[in-house]
């Protein structure tokens, strides 16, 4: 399309970023998101998995004005523009937290633990946050 396209020949690997932490209690969720955004520059086959408290990263209606921390949840909606469209959420984690797909601020594919595990096994590289 333009000169930003990567040159031919580089092997495309399957990368999965696994998000398991709630958004504000630790820095993991934000750091993980930044790594994902940076990884988009390398034209790899990137997917994101959300399980355990990581599903809370995608919860709608976050309002951080009262805690003086940046609300980075809108950034997950920018992932599509970065051509990162494979977002998987573990069903069991949602259910344990009383959440459904409707509570999430982006479109995701909800997978069972076994399905997510199978997806994970297919990857070349798995990076966990």
């Amino acid at each position: 399309m333009d000169e930003m396209d990567m040159e031919e020949g580089g092997a495309v690997k399957k990368f999965m970023f696994v998000n398991r932490k709630a958004p504000y209690g630790t820095i993991y969720a934000l750091e993980g998101l930044e790594v994902v955004l940076i990884s988009a520059a390398f034209d790899q086959d990137v997917s994101l998995a959300f399980c355990d408290d990581g599903v809370y990263e995608l919860k709608k209606g976050q309002d951080t004005k009262g805690i003086g921390v940046k609300n980075f949840s809108p950034t997950y909606r920018a992932l599509e523009g970065y051509d990162i469209e494979k977002l998987y959420v573990e069903k069991e984690s949602l259910e344990a937290r009383g959440l459904t797909e409707d509570d999430l601020l982006v479109d995701v594919q909800v997978l069972s633990s076994a399905e997510l595990g199978a997806m994970m096994a297919e990857q070349d590289v798995v990076i966990s946050f």
Partner: peptide, 28 residues
């Protein structure tokens, strides 16, 4: 609706339970 709800409800039998509003709002 979470798996912790039953624990909190049980706790309310013997304790007064509070949550910090700004932290609740931040987490949606």
């Amino acid at each position: 609706g979470s798996a912790a709800e039953a624990k909190i409800k049980q706790a309310m039998g013997g304790m007064k339970v509070y949550a910090l509003g700004p932290d609740v709002a931040a987490r949606g």
